[in-house]
Nucleic acid binder design. Structure first.
Lengths: 348, 348
DNA sequence: GTATTTTGTGCAAACGTTTGTATTTTTGTA
DNA sequence: TACAAAAATACAAACGTTTGCACAAAATAC
């Protein structure tokens, strides 16, 4: 086992300081100590000060497990995101932490990896850990919702964000995908493109559905017709974007611009265009969605729609706390989005 | 509170199924159920099957809190990283999850935000939650280590990774920063640059110290002298990289290449060079460290050192499990790094 | 047939809190 | 001084498990 003897150390079971130790030490009972630590005014100021001093002296640290067990609620909130390393999600997480940390709630973060089975497991794990609530953004795969319902049936507050299912009864926070997509498409139109395509994800996911609607609205409003052969679904990765644009430009009727429902797909599109020697934005316009960090670093810089991820996290956490306090409400909150115009689309 | 009355639902305290419910239902005691669920052969096969069936029927889910309280160990592992949205760290996390998930351990992820106070708080939070172990990568700010020692003193297994303090007695997993930096610098030398600078972080952090050593070794080995005025510390952000290069090129003696201890700084350097109209790689060579996703997307593409983050996560988790099983050992594991040559440095 | 082992189960305490109720102490009032 | 009210503290049960020990029944050995 151990490479050398002197590397091995006997880890003795550390005796933790409990409220009983403090109680014995001060000649009071555990209940008094408990109340004193909670700041309960039913114990005299003198005793409270004594307890606080002694607990500091002994290095007392509350056993959250015991506390949660007794109180029946764990002060832990579970969060399930598709991928932790997506700019958008990690910023939502930061927003959630911003609100949760000061309140003493602990955040348990897990990734579904865009995989339904892992998402289901994650929910069960969180339930087993008796989390006080669950925050979730659905994986692209997720088409069955028993696991979500299971959580709700247990009475665990649920907040959905970004990738939501509108039919599930829970608080929801979403981006204004519709307006973002609408503005993006309008911008392409104003920039003089006529044959505007749309590369998107699974339309059954609310976020992508709304983006499609925004795109469609802008088109019809400007009297442009959507050519359905310019609309590619399940096209959200770099590779898929590349394949789609290569494919689209082989056809008789070619688009002269494309609004992608994600920056990665837009990146793939730019790859393809560069390879084919097509000039951006002169000959072809590209707009993405999400404002991934790379979007302003690539050449040409990518016009995209910014989602206010941090703000969304803040709202999500706030909604969760409200829910946990029993003020359950099903309202959908919408976070505004913003078009960021860069080089890939503007030929004003 | 609630906007409309029909949105408000009375969340009744859901009565969870406990082992007692199963016990009563089957006419046995809770202890038998507990043992049966644990697969203890001291209870008859028949009873075990009965219990399993009934628990499935009633939808029993273990109360992890009660179990942890009784057993004195929580099956939860805490992980503290500086920033969750750094490519490197989120990949380490994925690696850790890869190992931990199948074992049933739960991972509690927190960010220190490169901030000592938050890091200390995070440690205390994890201790209060009675985690079975702590995985940590230190923040750049961290110069005092009482909080780390506190955890060790409690007998909580600790694994440090990447940003470690070698003096703390714990398992450690690090990148081969030395070799990575050595190869990067050698490469610049081979590419014909002579006045090679180095932009780095806090040298007291092991990772940066080692990179400096690798840089120095390559230089001296090739008979080149390090010009200390070309070495900039605390230069790991884009902005700092920009400022440093602008500053460095104002001086009489100018570097003609720079090895940055991070890709973000290298990005800032490229910004500065572009602004000053200096051609890369013809007039100036740049190498980064970390292989951030953007490094292959920018123009010119950035030569950098790849760290095997996922592999590191796997090793970290493995070390942690070993530790938790009492096989404590202090060995330092090293994960290999690899130079990726791109356009920013090669004028072979 | 009795003595011993094996096997399966029950009992009860423990983990460290919290909290409703009971009890003691203090304070105020007549 | 006596008595009620208020304040401070103690008591004990509970949260849902796990686990050492006790015990009964069945199986085996002599």
């Amino acid at each position: 086992m151990c490479k050398r003897l002197y590397f091995c150390i006997q880890i003795e079971k550390m005796k933790r300081i409990t409220i009983n130790d403090i109680a014995k030490n001060l000649g009071v009972t555990a209940s008094t100590v408990s109340r004193a630590l909670a700041g309960n005014t039913r114990v005299s100021l003198r005793t409270r000060e004594l307890v606080l001093a002694k607990s500091k002296e002994l290095g007392y640290q509350q056993n959250v497990l015991a506390s949660s067990l007794r109180k029946g609620t764990s002060g832990t909130i579970g969060m399930i995101v598709p991928r932790i390393n997506r700019h958008f999600f990690s910023n939502v997480i930061s927003g959630v932490e911003e609100i949760l940390n000061p309140t003493g709630y602990t955040l348990l973060i897990t990734q579904s990896g865009e995989n339904l089975a892992k998402e289901q497991k994650a929910v069960d794990m969180l339930l087993a850990n008796h989390v006080g609530g669950i925050i979730i953004s659905l994986s692209v795969q997720t088409q069955s919702y028993e696991h979500i319902q299971r959580a709700i049936d247990r009475g665990v507050p649920l907040v959905q964000f970004d990738r939501i299912n509108p039919d599930i009864k829970s608080s929801k926070v979403i981006n204004d995908n519709f307006t973002g997509a609408y503005l993006a498409t309008k911008h392409l139109i104003k920039s003089g493109y006529k044959e505007i395509g749309h590369f998107t994800g699974t339309l059954s996911l609310n976020a992508y559905g709304e983006r499609y609607r925004g795109y469609a609205k802008a088109m019809s409003e400007s009297g442009l017709k959507i050519n359905e052969s310019f609309v590619y679904k399940d096209t959200i990765t770099r590779e898929a974007g590349y394949n789609a644009i290569v494919n689209a430009l082989k056809e008789e009727n070619k688009p002269d611009a494309v609004f992608c429902a994600g920056d990665y797909a837009a990146l793939g599109v730019l790859d393809g265009l560069k390879e084919m020697g097509i000039k951006v934005p002169d000959e072809f316009g590209v707009v993405g969605f999400a404002n991934e960090p790379f979007s302003e670093l690539i050449h040409p810089t990518l016009t995209t729609v910014e989602q206010n991820a941090f703000e969304m996290g803040v709202r999500v956490a706030t909604a969760m706390i409200k829910n946990m306090e029993g003020k359950y409400d099903q309202e959908i909150e919408t976070i505004s989005t913003r078009l960021i115009v860069r080089d890939s689309s503007w030929r004003g």
